[in-house]
Write a protein that binds this DNA or RNA. Structure first.
Length: 967
RNA sequence: GGGCGGUUAGCUCAGCGGUAGAGCACUACGUUGACAUCGUAGUGGCCACUGGUUCGAUCCCAGUACCGCCCA
């Protein structure tokens, strides 16, 4: 056997992945010891429309590390795969596909035929991301792949499963407990998809907008036939009057003039003295045909901010969430103006009839009741798009001179004549607007009938579970976010006006009574003799993903998996779905099975580009993990993401980082290759492979201790979810200890009396290193494992080491650190004095204590080789020599007559200055009486010892300097 | 406006009571039995600012500035 010069990731990864799959290596319980504890993770289900992005790569790498780590410890591991059906996104993908194929739009399809099309699409293209996860090396139990729509009516063969049953069962259960209800509420409406969406699916973005200022004339007093007037008074902070005028109008500001048509009131703050005289009076909405102008009341409410705009706010309860609240509090009717596409309504009563009824309501002559039939859109605006209607309203009001105006002065450049003009006051200013996160269109608040989960009723157990530690969220700061959201929770809109999803299991009879049951037959049994119609809406996808932990394990059946793996151990996820998903899973699992879904939640950051910018298609800075895998291999990508996964930090990723870690893979590969070339893995004695050697030589004893330290640090880091520490610790051990020192130390030993034990030790250390690295870099380690011995199982099922401090030999440790220090000292002195790297120098022992002599005697050949010196001999420092100090010893290196005394003096003085600076700091501390009085005695002792060491070091350097000067 | 973070070497980040570390980058040297995807040595920091607590603060506390993110 001989190894190639580098690891060929491209060919090896496919081969190894196939071998794992053939061996069923990731199946639940694979490699489990008898009686081992269970460890389970459910994957955050990617959208069925999704493909692997860098966030998935991070998320699944971290899960895979935990899973492989536990599996190698012999635990009973399940990593549950699956996808969610992504209602809106999937429907959108298939609608687009049909359009591209020249087929009719969805509304012209039969519902069943359309969902059949989606199922067809799902079976052809829905598995993309699963294949991509395999390329990443994710060790999910593929045989258990789940889907949030499995088992739904109409699902094709191969999509049988319990998920639909679970979802329906939970809905019925929660309905029966009064936790789900239907009601007419203001919800976020997506005019593109023509469906309600939850507030979490709305993105608020600041966009350039306009604020118009309009005058609402006060009503005409029927007694006098004149418009009402009032004294409008403005005062400064000291109460001095700054403006006083008589007005017959109230001025309001709005960013949405088209909604004026549906105004139900004008509101001012109760403390606002400017408008106190007219609260309770009526004013006129200044749009629409003159003969149908409506009067609305001026009311007082806490909502308006007196300092904002004019301080008066128009109230359109059916089209704004804040206004809705004001309308509810004050009994103001909610007039709907828009249809489901975001155009002005053209249904309902005529505008004349509507205006008449609305007028009666405003004057208190009629109870508001259900105002759904009232359509206050004037005839000539019916059917207009919302933005067209806005232009029309603004133009009409301005033409009528009811816009608030300012005097615009223009001086003619040629004639110098002044031209004065009244212009409408329009502030161009950024406004926050809601957008649908899927459609990208502006969301409309709409008054519609929807289904809600009464979240305030089920939220407390989810809060308590984290409060009392049954579920732990890491990093801790996210607990605050979690609590804050749950403590201020709003009802959750769960109905969607879509076809792709779990249809709501509620039927209505002729009178609109509701019958909720798991099937039509059962609903019919509840309503004997009545004709039932099923609610056409489907459930929010997150309602089903909320049941992911129990649903994937077979609930509502009482399966062995559910008993074995639930609650799951750890959920690994991004902070962006703490609300969407984590909090809802907590609420729902607790509501349905009375148990937390997971014990730990590890929240990782968002992968950014190397400059720290969010990746986005529009910025063009998206990094495709598959490109990186193609270019460098999956292991370097995984290692890079892991080493950047510091808790609470966003990884900043660039290709050069991955390249650097590809070099790390090459480094391990070549260390192994070196070992292999030196017969390290050749024919071990029977039974010797994998057995821990018991070497005598300090070098071998030392590296075993370092291996144990690495193992302790690694397990500690992984147990604390400090993935970056795990990766960086292994990097330091493999590169800094194993390759830089141990391999170099071993070279001379291969020819001596310790050759046998050195080969055995090196074989063991490399085996340990790849075992420990396997969870982070599964491919290259599996390959090395196969190349370096006859194995009875793959490394994916390798035995996780359990050794620790007992392998650390203090004596070997001290001695090798001394040797390393000496070699570094000699190298440093040589380099600074410009001694050619190839030149071999004498090593003169000027002075040495017993320990130093023993260390030197035991490791002579190592020092000679790595410091490039001849065997040490006793002697005096003298002309042409440079000085090197090591603990308990000083050395001199003759570098010939050409020694640059000045350079050597500079070098030593620099070293001395450093030492003295450190020493004086310590001395200052020790001489401070308060330190002596208050500090821990142990600390004082340590400080003294450190100072003594520094003093000794300084004295040695000073001696060398003196000698240099005397020559 | 409310909340949560961050500010440490040129860059990316660790450290979080005892006077600062890593990787990358940079400089010089170098093909010594695996590795140039490499080796050796080095340069580089008022640990954002201002106070406080403490024998001692990069670390704890309070405030300020700037930069992010989330929610209004």
């Amino acid at each position: 056997m001989s190894m190639d010069k580098t690891f060929d990731a491209a060919s090896a990864e496919a081969r190894i992945a196939a071998a794992w799959e053939a061996a069923d290596a990731f199946a639940a319980g694979a490699n489990a010891r008898a009686g081992a504890p269970a460890f389970s993770i459910v994957i955050p289900p990617p959208n069925v429309t999704g493909s692997l992005h860098i966030g998935h790569a991070l998320n699944n790498t971290l899960q895979d590390i935990l899973v492989r780590w536990h599996r190698m410890q012999g635990h009973d591991v399940l990593w549950q795969p699956g996808q969610d059906h992504a209602g809106i996104a999937t429907q959108m993908v298939v609608e687009r596909k049909l359009a591209a194929e020249g087929k009719p739009p969805r509304r012209e399809w039969d519902r069943k035929d359309f969902t059949d099309e989606i199922w067809k699409w799902k079976q052809e293209s829905g598995g993309t991301i699963m294949g991509q996860l395999k390329r990443l090396g994710a060790s999910l139990d593929w045989s258990r792949n789940a889907f949030t729509m499995s088992g739904a009516p109409g699902s094709p063969p191969g999509e049988e499963g319990n998920f639909h049953d679970a979802v329906i069962r939970v809905f019925v259960d929660m309905y029966d407990k009064g936790l789900i209800y239907r009601g007419k509420r203001l919800v976020n409406w997506d005019p593109h998809f023509e469906t309600a969406i939850s507030d979490l699916e709305v993105e608020n973005r600041e966009v350039p907008g306009h604020m118009w200022h309009f005058k609402y004339p006060l009503a005409v007093n029927p007694d006098t036939g004149e418009r009402e007037t009032y004294d409008y008074v403005e005062r400064d902070a000291d109460g001095n009057v700054t403006l006083r005028e008589t007005r017959d109008y109230i001025s309001i500001a709005t960013t949405r003039p088209e909604t004026m048509l549906g105004d139900g009131a004008v509101a001012v703050h109760p403390s606002d003295a400017r408008y106190a005289p007219i609260v309770g009076k009526l004013c006129e909405i200044p749009v629409g045909p003159k003969e149908h102008r409506r009067l609305i009341p001026i009311i007082a409410d806490e909502y308006p901010d007196p300092d904002f705009g004019s301080g008066a706010v128009k109230i359109t309860g059916a089209h704004d969430f804040n206004d809705y609240g004001v309308a509810q509090r004050n009994g103001i009717p909610l007039y709907t103006l828009l249809d489901s596409k975001g155009a002005m309504r053209s249904d309902g009563l005529s505008s004349e009839e509507s205006a008449r009824l609305a007028g009666e309501i405003a004057r208190g002559e009629r109870e508001p009741g259900d105002v759904g039939q009232i359509n206050l859109v004037p005839d000539d605006m019916r059917g207009l798009d919302r933005y067209e209607a806005r232009k029309r309203v603004v133009a009409d009001i301005t033409a009528e001179r009811l816009a608030v105006t300012y005097l615009h002065k223009e001086i003619d450049r040629e004639t110098g004549a002044e031209h004065l003009e009244l212009r409408p006051l329009v502030d161009a200013k950024p406004i926050m607007q809601p957008f649908g996160d899927r459609s990208g269109v502006v969301i409309e608040p709409m008054l519609t009938d929807q289904w809600f989960v009464d979240t305030p009723k089920i939220v407390q157990p989810a809060i308590d579970a984290v409060r009392d530690g049954r579920t732990r969220i890491m990093p801790e700061q996210h607990e605050k976010v979690y609590f804050h959201w749950l403590e201020n929770i709003e009802p959750w809109t769960i109905s969607r006006q879509l076809w792709w999803g779990h249809q709501i299991p509620v039927w209505y009879d002729e009178d609109g009574n509701q019958f909720c049951a798991v099937s039509e037959a059962e609903a019919q049994a509840l309503a004997p003799g009545r004709t039932l119609t099923r609610d056409p809406d489907v459930l929010d996808t997150w309602f089903s993903s909320g049941l992911w932990p129990i649903g994937t394990l077979g609930w509502p059946e009482d399966t062995p998996e559910l008993r074995r793996y639930f609650p799951t151990d750890t959920l690994v996820t991004g902070f962006d779905i703490i609300f969407f998903w984590v909090a809802r899973m907590m609420m729902m699992q607790l509501a349905v099975v009375g148990e937390v879904p997971f014990r730990n939640v590890y929240v990782h950051g968002l992968v950014r580009d190397e400059k720290g910018a969010k990746m986005s298609k529009s910025k063009g800075n998206v990094i495709d993990p598959l490109d990186l895998i193609d270019q460098f291999g999956a292991d370097p990508l995984r290692f890079t993401l892991t080493s950047m996964a510091a808790m609470g930090r966003d990884p900043k990723l660039g290709p050069k980082h991955v390249e650097a870690n590809r070099n790390f893979v090459t480094k391990i590969w070549n260390a192994t290759r070196f070992a292999e070339m030196n017969g390290v893995f050749a024919a071990p004695a029977p039974g010797q492979a994998g057995v821990r050697p018991q070497p005598q030589h300090t070098v071998n004893r030392w590296i075993m201790g370092e291996t144990a330290r690495a193992r302790l640090a690694l397990d500690e880091a992984l147990a604390a979810y400090r993935f970056n520490d795990a990766a960086q610790g292994m990097y330091g051990f493999v590169w800094g200890k194993l390759c830089d020192w141990y391999v170099e130390f071993a070279k001379p030993l291969f020819d001596g009396e310790h050759a046998g034990e050195t080969r055995a030790t090196m074989a063991w250390v490399i085996e340990q290193a790849i075992t420990m690295l396997h969870p982070i870099m599964p491919f290259v380690t599996e390959e090395i494992w196969a190349l370096t011995g006859e194995r009875d199982k793959m490394l994916v099922h390798g035995d996780w080491p359990g050794y620790g401090a007992e392998l650390i030999d203090e004596h070997a440790d001290r001695q090798m650190n001394w040797v390393i220090g000496l070699i570094e000292g000699v190298r440093s002195a040589r380099a600074q004095m410009g001694v050619p790297a190839g030149a071999k120098l004498d090593l003169v022992v000027v002075q040495a204590d017993d320990a130093a002599r023993a260390a030197l005697a035991a490791n002579g050949p190592l020092v000679e080789r790595l410091a490039r010196v001849n065997p040490a001999r006793d002697g005096e420092a003298g002309r042409g020599m440079i000085s090197v100090a090591a603990p308990g010893a000083s050395f001199a290196l003759p570098i010939g007559d050409v020694i640059d005394a000045a350079a050597e003096t500079t070098r030593l003085e620099k070293a001395l200055a450093r030492t003295e600076k450190d020493a004086s700091g310590l001395r200052g501390r020790l001489s401070n009486p308060k330190f002596a009085r208050n500090a821990d005695p142990e600390v004082i002792e340590e400080t003294r010892a450190k100072l003594a060491e520094l003093d000794e070091d300084a004295a040695r350097t000073r001696g060398a300097l003196e000698q240099l000067r005397s020559l």
